[in-house]
Design a protein around this nucleic acid. Structure first.
Lengths: 213, 213
DNA sequence: CAGTACTGACTGACCAGTCAGTAACTAGGC
DNA sequence: GCCTAGTTACTGACTGGTCAGTCAGTACTG
């Protein structure tokens, strides 16, 4: 179990390399990231990277897939949730998304994709079908139900879903792009609570009904 | 005036190079952008780039500054606008910001900065003080006034300002990152109108007052 | 013909990707 | 237990391609 130097751990390597690569890619971007840095961060030499991944691009794809898959599992559970009111379901769903974004690498991943998807359109498309559509459809369904039941005022569900998601997306990206420079960003919990409050209030036909905070 | 080939136009070059560079940087990112491509797009050879800019990084900074400055001027005018109600002022201010983002290169610039600011923290800081603070403060002032006059419900002005801005930021970034891949994004005008409607409704103490669309 | 805007072949650095060599483990014979 | 031959995870010096940055030379201008 103790491996001071040059130890052999075939099973652990891919995971270690992927998480090291995620860090470096998020920090530098794909083009500026050096595989020597990734290897060093994972405690191996560059040659080892090529034992487990075909190329830099293959490593990049593996990083995206690994991160996204762990996130999809977390999101999967919430879809089947049949809670009381629409605003209640929306609150719970958004809370889970927010948590997933911040506690899994999905947030970092999103920032990485925003920066790089122009150079990797296939990955952008894959991300769209695997993650974005799923979350979008779930949000739309909740809002559409709320509108149908008369709890929400008659907003177009697809646009409203985008609007609900936007502030959280913005915070995730902004934090990761400028967080180091702009120290006075609001704390995540407060941001989440206040934002959801304004959004739900904006959707409700009878204001004050779905309030919580 | 007509310059078929190898003509001399000292005054026009910097501007041409900057706008060519903006395109290439936005498309590829700083690290992956090649100066040969920038030069070709501007209709000159790579050597010419170095007659007007010290280095690739200097060109990058020039791109940012040129784009941001043209935007600041456009925003400057709106601040001194003393229009009727707070929701009216907010609508007008956001409309100008939205227009500036889409009609000047500021939107492209923002996407570029999101992708690269980790590698250029000074530029991130500069952008923060020159653009972000200004817009943020203007938005906060409008919302704070609306709250003080009782038109808006008592939300924290700083957080509310971030919330108002987020959807537009998100749309700008999303469009530029994934626009080519996801064809069914809402058209900008409709997105703007619907979003502002939900947001203003969410802020108002007496719903329906500040409506327009 | 003097001055200058511009060119494009060249250099040197950097880095993705390779591969001959090494160290760590394993199985089997004693 | 100890040696040994075979296997495999890992290393790091090396290669080849790419590209930022240079500069001697060219073509246009007045």
């Amino acid at each position: 179990m103790k491996c001071p130097f040059r130890c052999r751990r075939k099973d652990a390597r891919p995971g270690e390399l992927i998480s090291a690569a995620l860090e470096v890619f998020v920090e530098k971007g794909f083009a500026a990231a050096r595989l020597d840095d990734v290897a060093a961060k994972a405690g191996v030499s560059k040659g080892t990277v090529y034992l487990y991944f075909e190329s830099k691009e293959a490593l990049f794809k593996a990083v995206i897939e690994a991160g996204a898959m762990s996130a999809v599992e977390a999101l999967e559970q919430v879809a089947a949730d049949g809670g009381s009111s629409a605003s209640e379901r929306l609150r719970r769903f958004m809370a889970t998304c927010w948590q997933t974004m911040n506690e899994t690498p999905l947030g970092d991943l999103l920032k990485l994709l925003v920066a790089e998807s122009q150079n990797f359109p296939e990955i952008g498309r894959w991300f769209d079908t695997t993650i974005v559509r799923r979350v979008q459809n779930a949000t739309r369904a909740i809002i559409a139900a709320g509108v149908a039941e008369g709890e929400f005022r008659p907003v177009p569900a697809d646009t409203a879903a985008d609007i609900v998601f936007a502030p959280f997306f913005a915070h995730i990206i902004w934090q990761r792009a400028f967080g180091a420079v702009m120290i006075d960003l609001p704390p995540p919990e407060r941001f989440f609570a206040d934002t959801l409050d304004v959004l739900v209030h904006g959707l409700l036909r009878v204001p004050g009904t779905g309030a919580q905070s």
